[in-house]
């Protein structure tokens, strides 16, 4: 470790990872600033809170939330599932797309309380263990993204689209994926990825 401490001050050290083709720096946190998981904010000073139980990726989460909390913020800030992205927070970009009872919705325009009692699936719940969902694998192979920020939403939407039977033609895929914006412009690659998955079943 010692000769690999690139930190000029040793404030936050970097450790070298030993597996996988990719890794980012892991932080050694001397002062306790970084946590393994985000915590729900303390409740004492916030306005009237309510208990909400969310069923996410087959796991139950009991939360105490401000009633104004959206499903997206509940996932990201309270449960620690940051796969669903906040792009516009106004339902216009699709980066926050998740499945509610199997249907694709934008989680930024859904109150967490409204999602109680419903089956929520996020990008983190798509793969079976280490095995990528075929749509995830197709996005990797067809390079269906660049920056990756819209990707979880694109994939959740794409999986739903195939289920809806809308993958029959390129034009249909394009129209029924138009709720998911990609500013890097990976659209042609995304269409190719979806076709490769839907190929046998459309």
């Amino acid at each position: 470790m010692s000769d690999w401490d690139v930190s000029r001050r040793g404030f936050l050290q970097t450790t070298a990872l030993t597996s996988g083709g990719f890794a980012f720096a892991q932080f050694v946190d001397r002062h306790g600033a970084l946590a393994a998981e985000p915590e729900a904010a303390p409740s004492e000073s916030a306005p009237a809170r309510q208990r909400v139980t969310l069923q996410v990726n087959r796991t139950s989460h009991e939360l105490t939330l401000d009633p104004r909390t959206t499903l997206l913020d509940a996932l990201r800030e309270h449960i620690g599932l940051t796969g669903a992205k906040k792009g516009c927070d106004m339902g216009a970009c699709g980066a926050c797309t998740v499945h509610l009872d199997g249907k694709r919705v934008v989680s930024c325009l859904t109150l967490a309380a409204s999602a109680e009692g419903r089956r929520i699936t996020t990008i983190e719940g798509l793969a079976e263990g280490d095995e990528l969902h075929p749509m995830q694998a197709a996005f990797v192979e067809h390079d269906g993204f660049q920056c990756g920020y819209c990707t979880p939403g694109q994939i959740m939407s794409a999986v739903a689209l195939v289920g809806e039977g809308r993958a029959a033609s390129d034009d249909s895929i394009r129209e029924f994926m138009s709720g998911n914006l990609c500013r890097c412009g990976a659209y042609p690659n995304i269409v190719a990825a979806i076709k490769s998955v839907a190929g046998g079943r459309a």
Binding site: G94, R104, V105, S157, E164
Partner: peptide, 9 residues
């Protein structure tokens, strides 16, 4: 109207 996600909601 809108997008598939919005139309589901």
């Amino acid at each position: 109207s809108a997008s598939p996600q919005v139309r589901n909601m």
